[in-house]
Design a protein around this nucleic acid. Sequence first.
DNA 1: TGACAAAGCGGACTGTAGTCCGTTACGGTG
DNA 2: CACCGTAACGGACTACAGTCCGCTTTGTCA
Lengths: 211, 211
Amino acid sequence: MALRFTPTDPAATAVTERADAARNRRRVLEAAERLFAERCPTEVTLDEVARVAGVGKGTIYRRFGDRAGLALAVLDAREREIQEQVLRGPPPLGPGAPPDARLRAFLGALAGMVVANLRLMVVAENATAGARYRTQVYAGQRLHVAVLLREGLGADPGLLPDLVLAPLAADLVGHLVEERGVRAEDLTGALDALVDRVLACGPPPSGTMGP
Amino acid sequence: MALRFTPTDPAATAVTERADAARNRRRVLEAAERLFAERCPTEVTLDEVARVAGVGKGTIYRRFGDRAGLALAVLDAREREIQEQVLRGPPPLGPGAPPDARLRAFLGALAGMVVANLRLMVVAENATAGARYRTQVYAGQRLHVAVLLREGLGADPGLLPDLVLAPLAADLVGHLVEERGVRAEDLTGALDALVDRVLACGPPPSGTMGP
DNA sequence: TGACAAAGCGGACTGTAGTCCGTTACGGTG
DNA sequence: CACCGTAACGGACTACAGTCCGCTTTGTCA
């Protein structure tokens, strides 16, 4: 089911959102945030979120569509923070640095966010197939990577942005971190190496790849 | 839950598998294959598979662990076919071609398989978080890519094999194909371009990237 | 060939996701 | 301020995933 509103984006909802709707949205997000932080998000039932939030279960589904939608909404704020840094923050994440440096910084920031919010990210992306790719957030990430690749390559990057972002899928990162003992910096290093190779076709750098 | 047997691999089970167990395994796989082909796999209930197979629901869970395990088992034969081609088939997929050509051929073959079995692949990878990455099949793919990259780069590829395989995650491919109108050959083209850049650090090729 | 571990079976059972629709609250209008 | 159309609410309801455990089948060993 499609979301009715862009979750937690006041600008998109303020015009029409009713007072009780706004109040309940806040309550649900607060309850979800708290419960997801306390316990593994897969173990939290939506009945429970509804009870803690003091709303009916139907309200959660009406607003967030499903479990993945709720998880995405909780993560939304954290992802918008990176977006904000990208648009208006200091380089190399923000404007001003060369494209390859910005791309490395961006992927590093994303990787850090995924690792820091692993469990919740897995629920958000996995509970509903392809949920990640239908979000505005992903569209924004893709656009940013596309622009940087275009600058760096001097050509239309085609599907490359999707290929470059693919390794940040939560279930892959979860597997790497939890079952293969990869650390966030190993992942970042490997992504840096990939970006180096994709963008700068000089001699292959050494010593920057993970174990 | 971990699988008790490597699904559908007679060599791994023949020694100990009881006659009734083997019979039921075949029945379940046949029923699942038929039902998954007739209808979207997400709409087929396991109760139904059990009924058609003429076994109890518990039997399916005992053997395949969960929905994703059953889907993986159904796909297993098709994935092993590619493995077989890689090990003993003609070049460029099989031995004999240079590493970059083999890598392109391998990723192309995988992409084709994912696209051809999209719905089922999505269930297999998505029903249980990270299911794809825990399989022997993925381990085999990763090893193959690692060997080819090592040959092509002359250095330890580190996490690069995972990064290169990441775009073949079923939910990403599903999104590209079904929501963005990407065709299998566009995806293959983009993967080729990526491999070119990663392996051969010559001038960027033109006209090989997707739209 | 009979008996006995133990592997396997199956379907009743439990809990949760997600739906549905009668009821309630909001806010715009006269 | 009272009315009304409509958006939103909420919890009973359905159906499915996945578990559990008493019963059955199998293969082995004497």
